[in-house]
Design a protein around this nucleic acid. Structure first.
Length: 571
RNA sequence: CGGGGCGUAGCGUAGCUUGGUAGCGCGCUUGUUUCGGGUACAAGAGGUCGUGAGUUCAAAUCUCACCGCCCCGACCA
């Protein structure tokens, strides 16, 4: 490809609406342009890089035994109603009506469609297991698109769905995908690691997210350097001790605490109750019903864990106006002592705790000497607290750390939720009809592309891993007039490399060398071959790996050297 | 949706407080120059100042509404 034939609109300055480095580089290097918030056009170079990522994904999915299909983006609303997700996923679904008034949704994911297909086409255990995948546009009405491709309203996702006859089979399918994901991200040249992930309201124990470490990531990952434990903070647990149980005896007692409405205030004189002897009482509204959440005064609630126990993600903190009639006091004086008729979910760390202090549901009063077991009716004990850095690892006891990361992939064992709802059943060997055991596996393709850039750059621009670079080699003649020797050599080298299957771009712009070098660095081509009159006088041209040192090679050796570089660099 | 901020040429921005000729850098066009890391000089094109209403003799500037965009929070590949 010749530079002047394609479109590479590089920018010296980044548009003001780009905040993080990878987003700025995507724009500055001329890879994408914004059409609207969270909606982007891929320009020729961006598309080439995207296709590289997709191709790696396809190869590894095929290798893992999955088969590619392509499902429609337009899906009938009834299908989503059958699984209940028309309501539960309402917030992110793009919904529309055709001119006849029929309701549709734009594909946010494809469990309904693929499960319907399997329900219709697969009848026997002899046809299983199967794993179908696709690479396609997905639409989510994100509450807040941000960071360019990181969180977009329209994006490219690889989604795969496995169907097995047994739980063990499903686990094997899951493991295949887990292994394939590791290979995919490694081949993309991006640092990555799997973490245990929250399974949300579907439940189950098997879900991993693949993370790319980055300070601009939207996920907090808890990890242990000593034993390798790693989990999304939404899921992570630690070996932190439970609250000490003291000698029983003290009787529950109400005391006046005028004006004290925070944990912090109660730790001070004259009360001097340490935060770890207080019970924090939070009120949430889940599925329009109030629920009470109890955690220790010095702990933080983890809302993802709360979602797991209340069985819905549709919840929010209750307002003071809702709390007053329910409990009889304002936030700051709340407690669960004697409360009945409202669900009370207590963090496991409080199990067995006594001589605790908590609000009395009477403004300006607290209880002391509360024994949870004796004084509070707990609906369910559950892990509800958020792990903090430095807490001991539950497996090995060493201190845990937390870091930010970008989620690029997610593998999930689904079970039979969808196959039951949509009747994806098969006849087993013994003649009995059973629902398929499913798994689903997603990779954010466009997000992965940006994560690679976020991780792989320097002050001059992108530093593409060879495997995903839009072009492997940029040939830069410093003089482009047609009869000039630089240009003639450039054309020859370009033709030879192309004939050898190397993806090369020839910068035939009549620009000053500085401009060409800056642009080549900004775009980040892994190898640059520069052809100038000075070195040509010695029969030499330059080879410079991006971010590496330049070497001079004889003109007739350059193709061989470049081929060696292209083959040596992993990918 | 809650909180904060911003909309002036393709990009980055000044001007707004205190109303009166719309300015600068980059990019773009033409010419000269330069020719190994964003050359220099000159000439030029390019603007509904987000949209609409209001106040005023006069609005980029003041008021109101709407739209769009960005950041923090809830959602997720």
């Amino acid at each position: 490809m010749k530079w002047t034939k394609t479109l590479i609109p590089t920018l010296r300055e980044a548009p003001a609406d780009a905040e993080i480095l990878s987003h700025k580089l995507l724009l500055r290097a001329g890879l994408i342009r914004k059409l609207a918030g969270g909606v982007y056009t891929f320009l020729p170079l961006g598309l080439r890089a995207l296709r590289k990522v997709e191709q790696i994904i396809r190869q590894e999915m095929d290798r893992a035994g999955a088969v590619e299909v392509l499902m429609p983006s337009l899906q009938p609303a009834e299908l989503w109603q059958q699984t209940g997700r028309y309501e539960t996923a309402r917030a992110v679904l793009f919904r529309l009506k055709d001119n006849g008034g029929r309701e549709w949704v734009l594909s946010a994911t494809a469990e309904e469609v693929i499960t319907t297909l399997v329900a219709n086409e697969i009848n026997s255990y002899r046809q299983l297991p199967k794993n179908f995948y696709q690479v396609s546009g997905k639409f989510r009405d994100e509450i807040r698109p941000r960071f360019g491709l990181m969180r977009a309203k329209e994006f490219i996702m690889k989604d795969a769905y496995s169907f097995d006859t047994t739980d063990e089979g499903a686990m094997a399918s899951y493991q295949k995908m887990y292994d394939a994901y590791k290979r995919i991200f490694d081949r993309c040249g991006v640092q990555n690691f799997p973490v245990e992930a929250d399974t949300g309201v579907i439940g189950g124990s098997h879900s991993h997210e693949f993370m790319v470490p980055a300070d601009t990531g939207e996920n907090d990952v808890v990890f242990c350097e000593a034993c390798g434990y790693a989990a999304n903070v939404e899921k992570a647990t630690s070996g932190i001790p439970k609250t000490a149980t003291r000698e029983m005896g003290a009787t529950i007692e109400k005391f006046a605490t005028p004006g004290v409405v925070t944990i912090e205030a109660l730790t001070k004189a004259p009360f001097s109750v340490p935060a770890n002897r207080q019970i924090k009482t939070l009120v949430y509204v889940a599925d329009s019903k109030p629920v009470i959440v109890l955690i220790r005064g010095d702990d933080q609630l983890n809302e993802a864990k709360l979602a797991g126990v209340v069985g819905t993600t549709i919840f929010r903190a209750a307002t003071a106006e809702e709390i007053l009639p329910a409990l009889g006091a304002h936030p700051g004086s709340l407690g669960a002592v004697g409360v009945k008729g409202i669900g009370v979910y207590a963090d496991a760390r409080l199990n067995g705790a006594n001589e605790m202090t908590t609000g009395a549901n009477e403004d300006g009063f607290h209880w002391r000497n509360v024994s949870i077991e004796r004084d509070i009716t707990v609906t369910k004990w559950w892990d509800l607290r958020t792990v903090s850095p430095g807490e001991p690892c539950a497996k090995c006891g060493k201190p845990l750390k937390i870091r930010r990361a970008i989620e690029v992939g997610h593998v999930f064992k689904l079970g039979t939720k969808y196959s039951e709802a949509l009747n994806a059943t098969f006849l087993d060997e013994d003649g009995s009809r059973k629902p398929c055991v499913m798994g689903c596996y997603g990779i954010g393709v466009t997000r992965t592309l940006q994560a690679i850039i976020e991780q792989s750059n320097d002050k001059d621009g992108i530093v593409w891993p060879l495997a995903v670079a839009p072009y492997q080699v940029c040939i830069t003649p410093l003089n482009v007039t047609a009869d000039n020797t630089c240009m003639k050599h450039a054309e020859t080298i370009y033709a030879q490399l192309t004939a050898q299957g190397v993806e090369a771009i020839l910068d035939d712009r009549d620009e000053r060398p500085g401009v060409k070098f800056k642009d080549a660095d900004l775009v980040g081509f892994p190898i640059r071959v520069s052809i100038g009159e000075k070195s040509l006088a010695n029969g030499e041209v330059e080879i410079k790996p991006r971010g590496g040192a330049m070497t001079l090679v004889k003109v007739d050796e350059v193709v061989k050297k470049v081929l060696a570089l292209v083959n040596r660099i992993p990918g």
